[in-house]
Design a protein around this nucleic acid. Structure first.
Lengths: 324, 324
DNA sequence: CTGAAAGCGCTTACAG
DNA sequence: CTGAAAGCGCTTACAG
């Protein structure tokens, strides 16, 4: 910036103004400065700018898994909105671990982001404390916190599972199974699903817990295990579309009639759910809207405007297709 | 840091040393400082640290699409390695646009990352100029640059397509089609594929160009269009496994025998390729290794060690399964 | 409209 | 082993 100043025959603060408050400068001064900038290919140093202004125009977003479309699809509209507003988003992956999340939050805070997006409403106590003492705007998404740290945009996992249970009961099923990936929210859905069955006087569902995050292979294996344990008729509620996809592939291989003998329901309504054969019935979340609302609220908070409502329930839907 | 210094009864530079060179301090001084840090929950300011040391411990990685597993799966080992070494990676998505990449590189440079990872070997002239004048270590991955900016870890797209063509010719096919997503590297593979057919005295392949990035729906539609245009027998080389998956679903729906009448080959060998029915034959790239090598080279360059070889060909393999 | 001055929160030689 | 001083590259009141 000092070099540019010399080239343009002004002082360094004037160059700074050319970038941040061009309207303050005389047109010809601005012109000379811009010429020097183009000539040298100078790019302002955001590190220095951040330190001086105590605004980094940086955001941190932490999701369980970057490669899972369920998360990346709300991140996409979120980062897009934020970028339009001049903010860059740092992406982090917690691998469904609260401990890892805690470490990432600490690393993120060290960079002094202007805002933080967190997936889920469950965080370690240390994490919450760090966040509070850093006094950075926070948006929790993909769940509905009872006691939000700050902003919150999500849906009720319990409620979605209850709806799924009622939907499947309504289809006349009386035997059920739940296949869950290793994810706290999936477990909560399983519990709510079970309670709804119990309330209807039905048998509790068979449970298959997957050791890690979901894959087609795990879905196949889980379905195989269910069949072999005698579950040869009923409805299976899967904690993700990927798992459901595996179930469907294995069912086809074993010539099990879907939905005649076995009904299958996914979760997330990913793109492929509508495309595979048979098309998968699934719980749909408006991830686009989730990302947009989170961006809107966080931006309002960051820029000192009113962020209302501070807690948004975006709901869910059950997309009935051929498998249940 | 000044607060911590007061609490511990030392000067601020001593607190700085406690973080960066603890071995320089007297154990009891260190102890007092650490107590103050824990008491207050103080997290050092990386912005100030970066400015003062002119090292940000920040990396920028630009990929075409974050939600595409093909890219996120080399990003994962890359970011993991880098994190172990104390570097955080900022992730950006260029949407297969060189213009967008150019803008992202400029934004990235403003943050003064210690290194940059770029997907592909094709970049705008402005982008290359920016990178050169910023003098930041750069790793280009997922392709083999003839004229690398700096470091390079990838494979030959041309060579992979030639192998695919020879493989399919070897299976006795004499009619071919290529379905390509809107991606420069996919087009290059298509050209190399065509040339190999021509060299073997075979008819050029039918071409189906998809308007955007790949989806199952697009694969289905492309296969429908091929059939209707009279392509009812032969081998189809798809530019991604996703597209191939769509082709397989549509083929099953139309009761087209695979691989008897139509052989299908994917690209990328994603997880689901082995799991779907029939299992998909595909071109496999060792993305894990790609990410690791990129991290290794970039780290060496950043830390002033020798980064050799500066250009690594990780090759590819053809995974023969049931569809071709 | 532009300049001179102070300051953002650290690191890093340089003394002692 | 620790302190005093300068500096990293900007922004932002404050003057003029």
């Amino acid at each position: 910036m000092a070099t540019i100043a010399q080239l343009a025959g002004v002082t360094q603060p004037t160059v700074s103004r050319a970038f941040n408050h061009p309207e303050m400068l005389q047109p010809e001064t601005l012109e000379r400065i811009m010429q020097a900038v183009n000539q040298t290919g100078y790019v302002p140093n955001m590190v220095a700018r951040s330190l001086a202004s105590s605004r980094t125009r940086l955001l941190a977003a932490i999701v369980p898994m970057l490669s899972n479309v369920v998360y990346s699809s709300f991140l996409k509209p979120f980062t897009a909105r934020m970028r339009e507003a001049g903010y860059q988003t740092m992406l982090f992956e917690s691998g469904f671990s609260l401990q890892e999340e805690e470490r990432l939050v600490e690393m993120a805070i060290a960079r002094r982001p202007d805002g933080i997006l967190l997936t889920g409403a469950t965080h370690s106590e240390t994490c919450r404390r760090h966040l509070r003492s850093a006094a950075i705007p926070v948006a929790e998404v993909w769940d509905l916190a009872d006691d939000p740290i700050d902003l919150c945009v999500g849906f009720s996992h319990d409620e979605s599972a209850r709806h799924a249970a009622r939907y499947l009961i309504g289809k006349g099923h009386c035997r059920f199974a739940v296949i869950s990936a290793n994810d706290e929210r999936a477990y909560r859905r399983r519990e709510a699903f079970s309670q709804t069955l119990a309330a209807a006087g039905l048998e509790l569902p068979r449970r298959v817990d997957l050791p890690s995050s979901a894959s087609i292979g795990q879905g196949k294996a889980a379905f195989g295990a269910l069949l072999e344990s005698g579950f040869d008729q009923g409805a299976i509620f899967c904690s993700s579309d990927i798992i459901a996809h595996g179930v469907l592939i294995e069912a086809a291989r074993r010539a099990v009639d879907v939905p005649g003998r076995i009904a299958v329901m996914g979760f997330g309504d990913q793109d492929f759910a509508a495309e595979i054969m048979p098309p998968l019935t699934s719980v749909q979340i408006d991830r686009q809207r989730l990302g947009e609302e989170a961006a809107r609220l966080l931006l309002a908070r960051i820029e000192g405007r009113e962020a209302t409502p501070a807690r948004i329930d975006i709901g869910f839907g059950i997309i009935a297709r051929d498998t249940a």
